[in-house]
């Protein structure tokens, strides 16, 4: 069965690139959401196999989205990989305490992104 990955990022261009990476390079299916709210709704409705979650988003940021995913029994089992452009040590430390499975820094390489995800999730 084809894997299905949800991308949550407010940047349309990045969603597009990630979609191409997952579908064309990785051969998986992808879902995309332009905001945290939308992402939560899709996650609950579609139960993707994994979520690529951007941290810095307006209104509801990735951290809040993650916490809501964790708080919801129907989504808490979905592995979440954070995408972040915040590379400062303090930011990294903060993220590491969240409990997400992994963090992939931006800019990411779309050609290797599927391999990275597969390695992290032991697919």
């Amino acid at each position: 069965m084809t894997r299905r990955i949800l991308i949550i990022d407010d940047e349309e261009d990045i969603r597009t690139i990630a979609t191409v990476a997952l579908e064309t390079v990785g051969g998986w299916d992808s879902l995309s959401a332009a905001s945290g709210q939308e992402g939560l709704a899709i996650a609950q409705a579609q139960h993707p196999d994994a979520i690529l979650l951007d941290v810095m988003m307006p209104e509801m940021d990735g951290i809040e989205v993650f916490q809501q995913l964790q708080a919801n029994p129907s989504t808490q089992a979905i592995p979440v990989i954070l995408l972040t452009a915040k590379v400062q040590a303090a930011d990294q430390r903060k993220l590491s305490t969240l409990g997400a499975i992994a963090t992939i820094p931006k800019p990411f390489n779309p050609l290797t992104l599927p391999d990275e995800i597969a390695a992290i999730l032991h697919w």
């Binding site: 990045i14 915040k86 050609l111």
Partner: peptide
Amino acid sequence: DEFVSIVSHELRTPLTSISGALRLLASGV
């Protein structure tokens, strides 16, 4: 710190798109 953090984010976001797009193009996929 906050400013550096934001600037870092603001710079990396377009870079992510540029490098991602060009890599995909260059790879021929």
